Computed example of a mutant assay.
Amino acid sequence: MRVVLTGGGTGGHIYPALAVAKEILRHEPQAAFLYIGTKRGLESIIVPKHNIPFQSVEISGFKRSLSLENFRTIMKFFRAVSDAKRMLKEFKPDVVIGTGGYVCGPVVYAATKLGIRTVIHEQNVEPGITNKFLSRYVNKVAVSFEDSLPYFPSAKTIVTGNPRATEVVSSNPEKGRSNLQIPAGKKIVLLVGGSRGARAINEATLAAIPQFSQYPDCHFVYVTGDVHYESIKERIDKQREKPTNFTVVPYVDQMPDLLSATHVIVNRAGASFLAEITALGIPAILIPSPYVTNNHQVKNARGLEKEGAAEVILESELNEAILMNKIDAILHQEGRWQKMREASLSLGMPEAATNLYRCLA
């Protein structure tokens, strides 16, 4: 099988594509891949590290208001379609898989015009404009949530879950602990705002650090994001009370291993991360980003909250008191953690990558 993968801009679009590639190789070890992204997106850095050939087209997103920039974007789109057609004719794929982001638009559209089988995957509850556009042309639409079904043509849409869920179920909790030298008997409370960090989560966590020592049975792991690490570390070093049950790091390379050892997580509500934590059944406190298109993280988070798998704090309401009250309730209210864990596991789809692989036939 020859497969073109496309998706970019954020890890939430890239890692599901890489998870699908891994699943395809499990079934078809001789499969060949090409990844088409943009030079400016994270995919240009992440994909080559996975030994997948990478090529790029130039494309950008539409502005919400009428502008000359949108006209330029339309021109870029048609140039990118032409470039993608050339790449596809050279590679001769059996299928093209799009996992979201602006780059999917021209690449998947080009594939449909060349008569190549196409599959797109939508990670969020409410789909982005690119996948809405492509759904009219592709052979199959895979979605992570049942709530996404009304947005797409019913005859070709299937709930598969998010392929990242499959990646984490085989992770190693002992390795997750040992990598950060966390004692085996401690419950891990993981606070993370994504690879680039989240200022609101960072500020609330900084203010809450003196309270961590009140939980001797827990170890708090604080992932600041690379951008904020040096300034945050400097502020922590100046604090009078620095608990011993606390680790601060800029980034975690093997996040699935740490997740599999985590007892409670505080995080944004990106779709891929939610797929991972529900596959593992981790009770969550979600602080959705208010800076994303269509406010989709709030909709993702509310879905978990409705099922009892998560607590939601809007960024505008976040402070250290509210954060620590919710952590304390999950840790110490009788039966609360177990109920949330069971609710989370009921939403998880660890077979997601296999489900999506079946869509390629």
Rank of each mutant, 00 (worst) to 15 (best):
N202C: 06
G303S: 13
A284R: 06
P150G: 09
V107K: 01
C359L: 15
I313M: 02
F152R: 11
G8V: 02
H332G: 02
Q181E: 13
I277R: 02
N124Q: 06
A17T: 12
P288I: 10
A184M: 10
S82A: 13
I277V: 15
T166W: 05
K186D: 05
R235Y: 02
V108E: 04
L318F: 01
R341L: 01
L149A: 09
R358Y: 04
R358P: 04
K132N: 06
P173E: 04
K92M: 13
F152M: 10
H332F: 14
N319G: 08
L180G: 11
P153T: 03
V248K: 03
G12L: 01
Y357T: 06
E311M: 10
A165T: 11
E230I: 12
M87C: 09
N355H: 15
K39H: 12
S346M: 04
P288K: 03
G61W: 00
A275N: 07
L149W: 00
A110T: 03
V159W: 05
V227A: 13
P243Q: 07
G335M: 00
A32P: 00
Y251Q: 09
Y35T: 14
P53E: 05
R341V: 00
G98K: 05
V312Q: 05
K113C: 09
G335L: 00
K238T: 12
S60M: 09
K132R: 15
E167L: 13
Y215T: 07
G98A: 08
P290L: 00
K76Y: 08
T160Y: 06
V227E: 13
E342Q: 15
R268C: 10
Y35P: 08
A361L: 11
I277L: 11
I327D: 09
G308N: 07
K238R: 15
G335D: 11
R26D: 08
I330H: 09
E234S: 14
I209D: 10
S60N: 13
K132M: 07
A155R: 13
L258R: 05
K156Q: 12
I236M: 07
M87D: 07
F212W: 08
V189G: 12
P283R: 07
A329R: 15
M87R: 08
L191G: 07
A17E: 02
R177F: 08
I45T: 12
I287P: 10
P127D: 02
L331N: 02
I287M: 07
Q123N: 12
P106G: 05
V221Q: 06
G197E: 03
P288W: 05
K113W: 02
A198G: 06
N51H: 14
L149R: 03
E69D: 14
V47Y: 01
G41H: 03
F91W: 09
Y215G: 08
I36R: 12
G194W: 00
K85D: 05
R72G: 15
F54P: 04
V3R: 11
N267P: 07
A329D: 12
V227M: 12
R79K: 15
R64C: 02
L318D: 08
G105S: 10
L356H: 09
G197Y: 03
Q297C: 08
D237R: 14
V141D: 05
I322S: 07
A321R: 14
R64I: 05
T244E: 14
V125Q: 06
